[in-house]
């Protein structure tokens, strides 16, 4: 009742998830369950309570501005996705399928 299959399809597309109709129906039921829970929570009086953005009531620790990383390009690029046995890298760049604008 909160969501229809079109909503699920839209969210799946935004998240780049390929889902068939059975999966969409299952996801709709699960997601609707979450909405039901939210509806129950809406009934609680939260006036005067500041919303939290994180489950822990702590504050972000900060790092001094200093360069601490060294160049590990070779290591990282050896882990890049492979094509015909070799990592998809060239001239220091990671290669990806062409992006057409």
């Amino acid at each position: 009742m909160f969501l229809d299959n079109a909503d699920v399809r839209k969210v799946a597309r935004l998240a780049r998830l390929a889902m068939n109709e059975t999966e969409i129906e299952a996801a709709r039921l699960q997601l609707s369950g979450i909405f039901t829970l939210i509806a129950e929570m809406q009934a609680v009086d939260t006036r005067g309570i500041a919303p939290m953005s994180h489950a822990q009531d702590l504050s972000q620790r900060l790092r001094e501005d200093a360069v601490t990383e060294t160049n590990q390009r070779e290591l990282f690029q050896s882990l890049a996705p492979k094509y015909k046995g070799s990592p998809q890298v060239e001239a220091g760049l990671y290669l990806v399928p062409q992006v057409i604008e």
Partner: peptide, 14 residues
Amino acid sequence: SLHEDFHGMTGIDL
């Protein structure tokens, strides 16, 4: 993203 031709691929510098 570097769109010069890398054999039909795009090069990424992060």
